[in-house]
Design a protein around this nucleic acid. Structure first.
Length: 577
DNA sequence: GCCGTTTTCGGCCCGACTGTTTTCAGTCG
């Protein structure tokens, strides 16, 4: 799948065109095409083979030609031509906060600066302050930007950002002049990683709100301080932007600050066509500047003849078109979840007892639970022998009786390097539920890995494929595998795909969930893979992925009532061809 | 460069903050 590569190419072209001072709409066109391709669920090579490149929104004849050349030859003559005029390295300079295309070009033309190293030298020699329209303050600002870029980790996982956001929201809520607080941006959309944290406050005393924010004990440095907008860097090097508006504009501001940018642009275009203007203060009629909506998000969308759109969908991935038609999905919610179908206990590498996990499940309002400890081959995880599993079965039955709570006796089998499972099929059929996944030999070729998983699924004994792509966000890439092929065989074998809720996995990912549902009609299961009772709380992250994948309760097996779930589990093996 | 139930030409989202300026360009989200 070369989608990321092609997107990178188009983004480079966009950046060089901007440096060159080309028409800004042309610049935007390339960037927009890149964004579209980045979010495409299908490999762009397939679209190319079918001659359907121009069917991608934002890709016209000219950009299609450039993609074609790149896919055929692995290079782009257009990019190379541009590179002769403007060195590609300058794109890196723009990564420094405070340095945009104009300044980058100025630095290059006047001082010969091409790299971050060059920039550092020019700054310490105080050459930057003498450039036209720049002064000592700009020099200092760029220097700070350079330090920030070294310090600031790139995007941080949702699982780390969410607790920070919750803490800040709690802190701000204690002030009487703060009427409402919400974390917005990609965090509210529950993206798997977060760049900056965006927080919105409703207040009639902006000044006090800003001071309260910048005096939050976690703040290390104030980057910008305005009357309605400020930015800080926390001690953990996370950038937080705070925006304050009056309560009567809160809905419009919430909408604006939640994004995504692409979603907002679409909405503003719709507003214009209706004779309105949409900004963070409200919806205004252009002819007399009269405000017609703004206090709530619902009324902002309603003013544009749209139903309220859940934040997780606001990515300009077709949600606005569906909203117009009244065909938005009724997304699955945490309260729909009736049980966790993949948890570990202290029988293998978990830390809680069976009783502990059951108590945790009951506390969360679940109706059932599946205990799926590791099997023998996974020595590092204290995997169980068949004898041990039989012993565990008795214990599970005992606890189930005592607690009057349905527990499935299952396991998480290991898909070995050759695609066999670590127990023979006859034994696996004894278990009430079989979850299976890849836990070793990650570095196989694409073909081998695909064949390995296909072979395992075709055994027909697997109910759920756990963490289907094996990625660890920011630590390990997904293994090389042909996802489409896996989904296809999953359909044939009635296998459900797991959405693993662990914030470092979130696997399957949102985009693939949507594809699994829409193109393959698969069922998904949202599991925590909890290794402790507390870990059961991770379910919310998996639900977020499902929502971003447009899933409804009916698409998610563990929203089923107990009886219906049992039928599905039994039926799965009977339906095998 | 892309796009079109008001268009194949003429549009293309909107505003805050900063610094260096005397009215605004550049950057950012």
């Amino acid at each position: 799948m070369k989608n990321q590569e092609v997107a990178l190419l188009l983004n480079k072209i966009s950046a060089l065109l901007e440096l060159k001072g080309e028409n800004r709409f042309k610049v935007i066109a390339y960037a927009e095409a890149a964004r579209r391709i980045e979010n495409l669920p299908t490999p762009i090579e397939n679209l190319y083979r079918e001659g359907k490149l121009s069917e991608i929104p934002g890709v016209g004849q000219s950009i299609a030609e450039k993609i074609k050349e790149y896919l055929e030859t692995g290079k782009s003559s257009y990019l190379e031509e541009l590179g002769k005029e403007i060195p590609e390295e300058l794109i890196e300079l723009e990564q420094v906060p405070g340095v945009g295309p104009k300044v980058a070009l100025l630095l290059y033309k006047e001082l010969g600066v091409r790299t971050l190293d060059d920039l550092e030298k020019a700054l310490s020699a105080h050459k930057v302050r003498n450039l036209p329209r720049l002064g000592p303050k700009s020099e200092e600002n760029i220097l700070r930007g350079l330090e920030t870029i070294k310090r600031r980790s790139s995007r941080i996982p949702l699982g780390l950002a969410l607790p920070v956001a919750e803490e800040l929201v709690l802190y701000l809520k204690q002030f009487p002049f703060v009427e409402r607080v919400d974390a917005c941006g990609s965090l509210r959309r529950m993206k798997e990683t977060i760049g900056d944290l965006d927080v919105l406050v409703a207040s009639n005393d902006e000044e006090k709100a800003m001071q309260a924010f910048t005096r939050w004990p976690e703040v290390q440095e104030v980057l910008a301080f305005g009357s309605t907008k400020s930015s800080v860097l926390t001690k953990s090097a996370l950038q937080i932007d705070l925006r304050v508006v009056r309560p009567e504009s809160y809905g419009a501001a919430l909408q604006y600050f939640t994004g995504s940018q692409a979603h907002n642009i679409k909405l503003r275009e719709i507003a214009i066509r209706k004779g309105f203007k949409l900004n963070e203060y409200g919806v205004f009629r252009i002819e007399d500047d009269k405000k017609i909506a703004g206090a709530t998000e619902e009324e902002v969308y309603a003013a544009l003849d749209l139903p309220w759109i859940p934040p997780e969908l606001r990515e300009d991935q077709g949600e606005i078109e569906k909203a117009k038609l009244g065909e938005l999905p009724h997304l699955v919610e945490l309260k729909d979840i009736k049980g966790d179908l993949h948890v570990h206990t202290d029988w293998s590498d978990g830390t809680s007892t069976i009783e502990g996990m059951v108590r945790g499940a009951k506390k969360r309002g679940y109706e059932y639970l599946a205990i799926c400890d590791h099997a023998q081959s996974l020595g590092v995880a204290g995997g169980l022998t068949w004898e041990k599993f039989q012993e565990q079965k008795l214990k599970i039955e005992e606890v189930s009786q005592k607690e009057n709570f349905p527990i499935l006796w299952g396991l998480e089998a290991n898909i070995l390097a050759d695609g066999d499972l670590d127990f023979p099929e006859e034994i696996l059929r004894e278990f009430q539920i079989v979850v299976a996944g890849v836990h070793s030999a990650f570095r196989q070729t694409r073909g081998k890995m695909t064949e390995r998983i296909v072979h395992a699924l075709k055994s027909g004994v697997i109910h759920i494929l756990s963490h289907p792509t094996g990625r660890l966000i920011g630590k390990r890439d997904p293994y090389e595998v042909e996802v489409e092929k896996i989904l296809e065989v999953a359909r044939e074998s009635n296998t459900a795909m797991e959405i693993n809720s662990s914030p470092e996995r979130l696997d399957l990912k949102d985009r693939d969930c949507r594809k699994a549902k829409e193109e393959y009609g698969l069922k998904m299961v949202i599991n925590t893979d909890a290794h402790s009772e507390e870990n059961l709380d991770l379910m919310k992250y998996g639900v977020a992925v499902a929502r971003r994948g447009w899933l409804e309760p009916g698409d998610v097996l563990n929203t089923y009532p107990w009886k219906q779930l049992l039928e599905w589990l039994k039926g799965k093996r009977e339906r095998m061809p």
